Amino acid sequence: MLPRTLLAGLSTACLSLIAGISTATAQDLEARSVVLVHGAFADGSAWNQVTPLLEEAGLNVIAAQIPLNSLEADVAVTERAIDRLEGPVVLVGHSWGGMVITEAGARDDVHSLVYVAAFAPDEGQSLGTYTADFPHADGLDFLEKDAAGYYRLSHEGVAKHFAFDLPTEQIDLIAASQGPINSEALGTPVTTAAWKEKPSFAVVTTQDRMTLTDIQRAQVGKLNAVAVEVDTSHVPMLTYPQVVADMIIEAAR
């Protein structure tokens, strides 16, 4: 097993080598399955490039389609996905999905947690209270709230802050297919912090304008997480899918 500070700052070339090692030793995986949890302003298709890499490594995968109506509803959908799979299960959360796996990950059949540009709060913390002590994320200036109280990210926000290093065609698709999140969900605290009991891993994005890099780096020490930093925007599963897959495979080991 690589040391817990192992991957921080490694080059893409080194990570490619790690990818080969992970695939070659797939028979050594302790976890059998993976549940991928998308964040706000996204949907399950955010994992389309990561999923086949995990399946090639011998893992069963479900990309949960969470409704973003409430934290409780998102956790319930995630738990139903866990129930469908052979355990042990690795839970992976992107952005808001980190809130979800922090709550859902306390189950006995959850093997480990992977935070991908994601939030990892403590018990009693909502997203709002958790981020209150950090600087303002520029991408939040582009939120649009509808009459029902749901936030969407404007096309400009997606292009300039959420996924600025993707091709225009992908940016357009993300903006059109994004899942709006209920504003009330942002004030709901988690009741458990599964990372206190489960091995944790993190993909930290160094150009993130949604989940600030400072937040992600602060979490690595708190979680005692194996971590890798990638020089990219808020969507590393689309810009660096192999790096994200490698980290999930490492978590499954």
Rank of each mutant, 00 (worst) to 15 (best):
R4N: 11
S233Y: 10
G9F: 11
P167T: 14
V34N: 12
Y240N: 12
R4W: 01
A218S: 14
A252W: 00
E103A: 08
D138A: 15
F134G: 05
A42C: 03
R253L: 10
H136T: 01
L2Q: 13
V61Y: 08
A159H: 07
V90H: 01
V75P: 02
P236M: 09
C14A: 15
S112H: 09
F41E: 03
R217E: 13
I82Q: 01
T191P: 06
Q125D: 07
A218P: 05
N224Y: 06
D172I: 11
T205R: 06
A46Q: 06
T102H: 15
A176K: 05
Q125R: 11
T5S: 15
E79M: 04
Q216M: 10
F164V: 00
P52S: 11
D133V: 00
Q125V: 04
E197G: 07
E250K: 00
H38A: 02
A148G: 12
V50L: 13
I66H: 04
I21N: 08
V100R: 07
K145R: 10
A63I: 07
Y240A: 12
L54W: 05
A117D: 13
I82K: 01
Y151A: 05
S154E: 05
S45W: 09
V203G: 10
S126I: 04
G187H: 07
S45R: 10
R32G: 08
H161C: 14
L223W: 07
P121I: 14
A19N: 03
A104I: 00
A63V: 01
A163Q: 10
L68D: 02
E184D: 12
N224F: 09
E30V: 15
E56R: 09
V228D: 04
